[in-house]
Design a protein around this nucleic acid. Structure first.
Lengths: 247, 247
DNA sequence: TTGGGAACTGAACAGTGTTCATAGTAAAGT
DNA sequence: ACTTTACTATGAACACTGTTCAGTTCCCAA
């Protein structure tokens, strides 16, 4: 074995990698690195090679631990949920509880770059994520929602949250690329709406001042409230059947 | 110049392309071809080269008419809306009108492969699409919706429709890849939910029979009705302010 | 010490978006 | 009629992408 602290003789080429602590590659570390790349490069530039480079490792090494890029994305997706808090259901406060959940989810989706893009196109039906779905169902179920409404509401909420966050991040991307501020972009868009011919676009012109808000919080909250009012209207009702009554 | 009907002598190499009717390349034709490729190959395999091949043309030729792949996708997105029908607003029938619009949109998103994927990640704010947004606003506005609700509802509806259709197409993709039928996949998923430990997942187990329906129509309609009830609850109310009252 | 098996490498393959000097074509100017 | 001009289309190239695979390297059990 190589004596410690001895200069290696020139004819004996040094070992390619010195012994010290080669941290073994694991799925966890790969996902970590992938998130680092995502933060730095964005979703579109997140590539296996970049992840490998981040770890100082050959690309093909990744494929020992991960079948696909798809699988890696899936792992990132489930990682995203770690530490989510869905409260113990309380029938009195279900609306506030659902809202807290939604706010938490949106906040998380916007906490790192392009997380919304990552989330879009994945269904939260992997074993690790089912507890969260279950808890959300529990909160809504405790409120006294009919079965069929319950079965649909989780999907609805997550669709709304994801969709909203995705749209936010699309605007973010746009003003990142154009190198303008959100404030300026918002102003431009609203001015554009205001400048439309009022005879052909009366509604858009009339609403041009509030189509985009300085902060999106209000729009998010209002949308949420709309869904919640809709859900609340079913509390205590029997399961709706195939026919949907008009008006 | 070359005499007509004369055999070209061997030393004079024939003109690279004979005169006849070279159909000029246009944005329209490129978009057409792109849709053909999309139908055949799916969104992930839709590439500039495939589109070029479809047209029998070099890749770089596309870039004369189209700045980017992004721009091409944008063009496809706006093309998707052609022939949409948003009705003349009728305050008496606004719910049915909105539903018709939503059904029409979903139908269209599912009419061709991966259209939902294409739609996701685009905001319908290009000049060509504004008429549709305006009309939808008109229908909702005629119902007597407060301004701020109006400003948010178009977004909400399109988010819901897109999100729902995207999820549908994700399942479609999954059973296309696994080579099973939708019926079988649905059964497997529901059985999976049913097989969960009932103590930890009481709600999911209880709902396992209706988490996925044989057809998604019912779930779509119910979600739509929930949003509409939420919207309807605002009719006649003044603009909601920043505070959202609980319960 | 000697396997054996897993982890990792490097090179390769087929494909991607995009650019650019060049060749061809058709209309406009002289 | 001939040249100039503007523009479209070409083919090759660049710098990437995901994925595979024959080898090497490494560590641990026998």
């Amino acid at each position: 074995m190589t004596q410690p602290d001895m200069p290696t003789p020139p004819w004996e080429r040094p070992p390619k990698r010195r012994a010290p602590a080669r941290v073994p590659l694991t799925r966890e570390r790969i996902v970590d690195a992938a998130f680092t790349v995502l933060d730095r490069e964005g979703y579109d530039r997140l590539s296996m090679r970049q992840v490998a480079a981040e770890l100082g490792v050959a690309v093909s090494a990744l494929y020992v631990h991960v079948r696909d890029k798809d699988e890696l994305l899936q792992l990132m997706y489930t990682r995203m949920f770690e530490g989510y808090e869905v409260p113990e259901p309380d029938p009195e406060r279900w609306r506030e509880q659902v809202k807290d959940f939604a706010r938490q989810a949106r906040e998380r989706l916007l906490s790192r770059r392009d997380l919304a893009k990552l989330a879009m196109g994945h269904v939260p039906f992997t074993p690790e994520l089912l507890p969260y779905v279950e808890r959300l169902m529990a909160v809504l179920g405790a409120a006294g929602m009919p079965r069929r409404v319950l079965a649909v509401s989780g999907d609805m909420l997550s669709t709304y949250i994801n969709g909203f966050a995705l749209e936010e991040s699309l605007w973010q991307q746009r003003y990142r690329e154009t190198d303008t501020s959100w404030h300026k972009l918002r102003e431009e868009v609203n001015e554009y709406f205001a400048s439309l011919p009022p005879d052909r676009f009366p509604n858009l012109v009339a609403l041009s001042d509030i189509m985009m808000d300085e902060s999106n919080d209000y729009r998010f909250e209002l949308g949420l409230e709309i869904i919640l009012r809709g859900l609340a209207s079913y509390v205590g009702e029997p399961d709706p059947d195939e026919e949907h009554e008009e008006s």
